[in-house]
């Protein structure tokens, strides 16, 4: 009859199991697929990530030297990171913050990788 009561009383005297988010946040675990970034200056704009992505959220444009990801369509699976030939894509563990507006993560390459890297990768 009073099986739950014991647990409830114990809960009264123990520390809260919840956090006062956003005042108090938990440290993200390492290696969590939280957010996707591209180290754009090393990117060779080969388009492999675009081809491999299951949710078609990456757009690589060689002409204008841009790399763009739609963070709201990305499912954070990490497939693109695994397939990038020069390993310029990487994931970081802090999750994306909520936003009031959808903003694409659009990166423009200014200089591009040094010729040597380019030759080695191709």
């Amino acid at each position: 009859m009073f099986d739950m009561t014991r647990t409830i009383i114990a809960n009264f005297f123990s520390k809260a199991h919840t956090r006062l988010y956003p005042l108090q946040t938990r440290e993200p675990f390492p290696n969590v697929r939280g957010n996707l970034f591209n180290n754009i200056e090393e990117c060779i704009l080969c388009g492999m990530c675009q081809k491999r992505c299951p949710s078609q959220c990456i757009t690589v444009d060689k002409e204008s030297q841009t790399w763009q990801v739609d963070p709201y369509a990305c499912v954070y699976c990490g497939v693109c990171v695994e397939h990038c030939p020069v390993h310029c894509l990487f994931m970081e563990s802090p999750y994306r913050k909520p936003a009031a507006e959808k903003v694409m993560n659009r990166l423009v390459q200014v200089q591009g990788p040094a010729k040597k890297t380019k030759g080695a990768a191709q």
Binding site: F29, N31, V32, R33, V75, Y76, C77, G78, V79, M91
Partner: peptide, 12 residues
Amino acid sequence: MEATAGNRVIIS
């Protein structure tokens, strides 16, 4: 799951 696989539910 989150700490080992990287995502909470759809762990890929």
